[in-house]
């Protein structure tokens, strides 16, 4: 072993500080539901239809990958939410099989969850595991709309 080097120590401190700040920032943002405005883009609608999103149904679309560990947690949240709200369909899309659709829908990370309303428009988007309560709150007005 060589004696400790000042450069190595400085790089170590810088790396830990930068990674710590990034990790903290990411944890705060992860899974946050974002309002998509303006809702509904024609090309997005076509891509969603090609993936099997049915018109007239509120759908939660989850993009997953074989190397994605949090995808399982996201799936559990979505299944739980769909079990609590009537008339919500779930659709899990493997990005490996649908790389072109992932490009069209601007998906960069897995899991990404899209909330699609009955008119086939994307109204919310979350990268990461979404929060159950946030999803339920976002779904409430939509499912009402579909039922009415």
């Amino acid at each position: 072993m060589q004696p400790p080097r000042l450069t190595g120590v400085l790089v170590l401190v810088a790396v830990l500080a930068a990674a710590g700040a990034f990790g903290w920032w990411r944890r705060r943002r992860d899974g946050r539901l974002r309002v998509v405005a303006p809702a509904g883009d024609a090309s997005h609608r076509a891509a969603l239809a090609a993936l099997g999103v049915r018109p007239g149904t509120v759908t939660l679309v989850q993009f997953s990958a074989p190397v994605c560990a949090p995808c399982r947690a996201a799936r559990r949240v979505l299944e739980d939410v769909a079990g609590r709200v009537d008339g919500v369909a779930l659709l899990e899309v493997g990005v490996e099989e649908h790389l072109d659709r992932a490009r069209e829908l601007d998906i960069w990370r897995t899991p990404t969850v899209l909330l699609v309303d009955g008119a086939g428009r994307i109204v919310r988007r979350a990268a990461g595991v979404p929060d159950r309560a946030d999803l339920l709150a976002a779904l409430a007005p939509l499912t009402h709309e579909v039922r009415a």
Binding site: W24, R27, V67, A69, T110
Partner: peptide, 12 residues
């Protein structure tokens, strides 16, 4: 520290 898998995140 955060359970964040950077490689997996960058995969897609």
């Amino acid at each position: 520290a955060f359970g964040l898998c950077l490689g997996c995140e960058g995969y897609l």
